[in-house]
């Protein structure tokens, strides 16, 4: 697979490390009640769609950036690649 890095252009997927569902970005904060249920859902309930999936890739053999890659899991087409910080910003705007 080839991932279009926002600044470094097309890079081979072997330069990256895969983490998983981009929902992992939205880690709950520890509250006074230390709600384990919320953390449980964050840690163990992941989306696994057949189709468009936002996922985290780390450019370990590159610039060490964490990226949000939107990939179609049925055909590996990569629809969008963003820096995490840009993705979070646009997410907050929505």
């Amino acid at each position: 697979m080839i991932i279009q890095h926002p600044d470094l252009g097309p890079r081979d997927s072997s330069e990256f490390v895969y983490k998983g569902d981009a929902e992992l970005l939205f880690r709950p904060e520890r509250t006074e009640n230390a709600d384990q249920e919320i953390f449980h859902d964050y840690l163990y309930l992941r989306n696994n769609p057949a189709g468009k999936h936002r996922e985290l890739w780390y450019h370990e053999y590159g610039d060490r950036s964490w990226l949000v890659v939107t990939r179609d899991t049925t055909n590996h087409e990569i629809l969008k690649v963003e820096y995490v910080k840009d993705y979070i910003k646009s997410y907050k705007v929505k």
Partner: peptide, 17 residues
């Protein structure tokens, strides 16, 4: 060594941007 560094970059870039 490698996985801790990866984890720290994750914490920094993804959890505490």
């Amino acid at each position: 060594a490698v996985t801790v560094f990866r984890h720290l970059e994750f914490c920094k870039q993804c959890l505490k941007p």
